[in-house]
Amino acid sequence: VIAMPSVRKYAREKGVDIRLVQGTGKNGRVLKEDIDAFLAGGA
């Protein structure tokens, strides 16, 4: 999974398994917005 360390930390704090999140950034990078969208109700 491609993600910046700050995004990985954010996901950990929110209790999200970053491997389950679909990245929308360049080359499938997971963004902070992707974590929020995942929490809001889905992949």
Score class of each variant (00 low, 15 high):
G42I: 15
I18Q: 01
A43I: 13
R8D: 08
I2H: 07
G23E: 02
G15F: 06
R29S: 13
K26Y: 10
K32G: 04
Y10W: 03
G28Q: 06
F38W: 12
Q22T: 14
V16S: 01
L20H: 10
I18G: 00
G25S: 03
G23V: 03
A40I: 12
K32V: 09
V21M: 05
R29P: 02
G15I: 03
P5Q: 11
L20Q: 13
R19N: 13
G42P: 13
K32E: 06
I35P: 00
V16R: 00
D17N: 09
I35D: 00
L39D: 05
I2N: 11
V7C: 06
K26A: 12
V16E: 00
S6L: 08
V1T: 10
P5I: 11
G28F: 05
V1L: 09
E13N: 11
V21A: 03
R19D: 08
S6I: 07
G23K: 02
K26E: 14
L39H: 05
E33M: 10
I35G: 00
R12E: 15
A37H: 12
P5N: 12
L20I: 09
V1P: 11
Y10A: 07
L31Q: 08
D36S: 03
E33L: 08
L31R: 09
V7K: 02
N27S: 09
G25D: 03
T24S: 13
L39S: 05
A11K: 01
T24L: 03
I2L: 06
V30S: 01
G41H: 14
E13F: 09
V21T: 03
R12K: 15
T24H: 06
Y10K: 06
G28A: 06
I18R: 01
Q22G: 08
G42S: 14
G25I: 02
Q22F: 10
A11C: 07
R12M: 15
D36C: 06
D36L: 05
M4W: 15
R19Y: 09
V16D: 00
I2W: 02
F38K: 04
P5L: 08
D34P: 00
D34Y: 01
G23S: 04
G41V: 13
L31P: 00
A37S: 11
I18M: 06
S6E: 14
R19W: 08
R8M: 09
K26T: 12
T24G: 05
R29G: 08
N27W: 11
Y10Q: 06
I2A: 08
I35W: 00
P5H: 10
G42Y: 13
L20T: 07
I18K: 01
V30Q: 02
T24F: 03
A37Y: 11
F38A: 06
A11H: 01
A37E: 10
S6K: 10
R19Q: 10
K9G: 06
L39P: 04
G42M: 15
D17G: 02
G15W: 05
N27T: 05
Y10E: 07
Y10P: 04
L39M: 09
G28T: 04
S6Q: 09
A37Q: 11
A11L: 02
V7I: 09
G15A: 06
G28L: 04
V21E: 00
T24D: 02
K32S: 06
F38D: 02
G28D: 04
A43G: 15
V16L: 06
G28W: 04
P5G: 10
L39N: 05
M4D: 15
R8V: 13
V21Y: 00
V21F: 02
V30R: 03
G15P: 00
A11V: 01
L39I: 14
K9A: 12
V16K: 01
D34R: 00
V21C: 08
G25R: 02
G25V: 03
G23L: 02
V21D: 00
D36R: 04
K32M: 13
A37N: 14
G25A: 05
K32D: 04
R12C: 09
G42E: 14
A40F: 10
G42Q: 15
G28N: 08
G23F: 02
S6D: 15
R12N: 15
L31F: 07
S6W: 10
V30Y: 01
L39A: 07
V30I: 14
V16M: 03
V7P: 03
D34W: 01
G23A: 07
E13R: 11
G23D: 01
L39Y: 06
T24E: 03
D36W: 04
L31M: 12
K26D: 11
N27R: 10
K14A: 08
G25M: 02
M4P: 10
G42W: 11
K26G: 09
Y10V: 07
A40R: 13
L20K: 11
K14H: 14
A3V: 07
N27Y: 11
S6G: 12
L31A: 04
S6M: 07
M4E: 15
K32Y: 09
K9Y: 07
A3L: 03
T24Q: 05
R19A: 12
V1Q: 09
G28Y: 04
V21K: 00
I2S: 09
V16W: 01
I2G: 07
I35V: 10
A43Y: 13
L31D: 05
V30D: 00
E13S: 12
I35N: 00
G25P: 01
A3H: 06
Y10I: 08
V16H: 01
A40D: 11
P5F: 04
R12S: 14
D17P: 06
I18D: 01
R19M: 11
G25Y: 01
Y10F: 04
L39K: 05
F38M: 06
T24W: 03
V30W: 02
I2T: 11
R19V: 07
A40E: 13
I35Q: 00
F38L: 07
I2K: 11
Q22H: 14
K26R: 13
R8K: 12
N27K: 11
I18P: 03
V7T: 07
A11S: 05
I18W: 06
L20E: 12
G28R: 07
G25N: 02
K9Q: 14
V1A: 08
V7F: 02
A43C: 11
G41S: 15
